[in-house]
Design a protein around this nucleic acid. Structure first.
Lengths: 237, 237
DNA sequence: GAGTGGTCTAGACCACAGC
DNA sequence: CTGTGGTCTAGACCACTCG
């Protein structure tokens, strides 16, 4: 049985999407909603808070609760998990995504990797490079470093399917990411695997992915072909 | 007088930063905190929820409340407003930022602009191009479209200083943004103003900035030199 | 079973906006 | 002044984890 406030939030969401609550006027006030759903006002407020963080509605003290004018636009992009992971997710609806392992090594981290992953110089890391293909066409080349102690037993098979699926089976949960996006000139590896000219720009994403408790899970450089879409960033205040 | 739960949240934050609550063990439980702060447990939970959304702590049912291992790292980057606006803010600490107006026109929107700004074909828009300079060096070239009815009275002087400062004086508040980041080859305008070669990649940010109620305020294409840093993206679950 | 966070109630008073 | 959302109380029971 889901929490009552989540059930109510879903019901209100349905009504907004079906335009039962017109975007032009405020929602019924919290007292009315509490009466209708046979619950207390606090519970209604929890449901409303839920919809606020989802970007669906906003409140104005002294005025009421309103539907965001752009929630439908945003909801097209703000899919849960759509850019949590290797950003591959963004393309899955466009065709078949596959991976090809270019390198899979074990070594010790350099200084940059130590500080990014919050580990010591003697903590071994996996170092692997994968080529991501969409319908067989090269899409991105990712170089990843992960601490061995967090993900014991990682093998080439996991790299070819989904590393994050394996990570989940270990009971680890992703919390978020820190990324820097740049445009760069392609190096030799990129020209070779992404099949691009020296004059073709490359989109570089340098990222650290964190677990729920803030432990860094991976530090990676992802290089994307310039002609295969971009990175979507949604930022709600 | 600030709300009690915010006062408590600030106090707990202080204790975490000063290491009074060691990162190795859980915080005091909610009942103990309620007793210490002479308040109800609900209020403590509000304070805790506040610190969760700030990315400082996390909770585990049946276990306790814990400090995130990376909150200090993230707090270096997750500065409020650091990438809300034209991303110029990111560089302000590096030197003097100035703007040079390349174009400032009035016209009707095309189809893409109509759908991005949620306006009709007969709603006039400003169309301006600005070159952003850091310490006199070209940094980015931004092409912006804004509905006239939202920002009446915009003039060249505002473009040279800060459009967002003017927007704020009109009582409008920014809610968030929707962006797509790509790597592209420079066009003629970019090569001319950003002083780059045809083979130099350019970082393109296509963005829509929204007001509090979801009304689109601006639709812009921002082009950055590849050798002047990147876009930082922080993503908490 | 004991201890933790998660949810919920039925009220109360305060702060803000609009008439 | 009225109506709205914002905060707060003092309890209650439930769900989960661990010894």
């Amino acid at each position: 049985m889901a929490a009552k406030y989540l059930t109510i939030a879903r019901e209100i969401k349905k009504r907004i999407i079906s335009q039962r609550y017109p975007a032009s006027s405020p929602l019924p006030d919290q007292f009315a909603l509490a009466a209708e759903f046979q619950t207390s006002r606090m519970t209604i407020q929890q449901a409303i808070r839920q919809l606020i963080v989802e970007g669906l509605i906003y409140t104005r003290q002294g005025q009421g609760t309103f539907v965001r004018k752009n929630f439908l636009q945003l909801s097209q992009w703000d899919l849960p998990g759509s850019d949590y992971f290797g950003a591959t997710k963004t393309w899955e609806h466009l065709g078949t995504v596959s991976s090809q392992v270019v390198r899979f090594d074990l070594r010790f981290p350099n200084e940059k990797e130590q500080s990014s992953l919050l580990i010591n110089a003697d903590a071994p890391v996996y170092d692997f490079v994968r080529l991501r293909l969409l319908n067989g066409e090269p899409m991105s080349l990712d170089a990843t470093v992960m601490p061995v102690n967090l993900v014991p037993g990682l093998n080439k098979g996991h790299l070819e399917s989904s590393v994050f699926q394996y990570v989940e089976t270990l009971g680890l949960k992703i919390m978020g990411s820190y990324r820097v996006v740049r445009a760069i000139k392609p190096g030799e590896l990129e020209q070779q695997h992404l099949i691009c000219e020296a004059g073709d720009p490359v989109l570089e994403v340098e990222q650290v992915i964190y677990l729920e408790d803030g432990t860094p899970l991976e530090y990676a450089h992802c290089h994307y072909r310039y002609d295969h879409g971009g990175i979507v960033i949604v930022n709600n205040g």
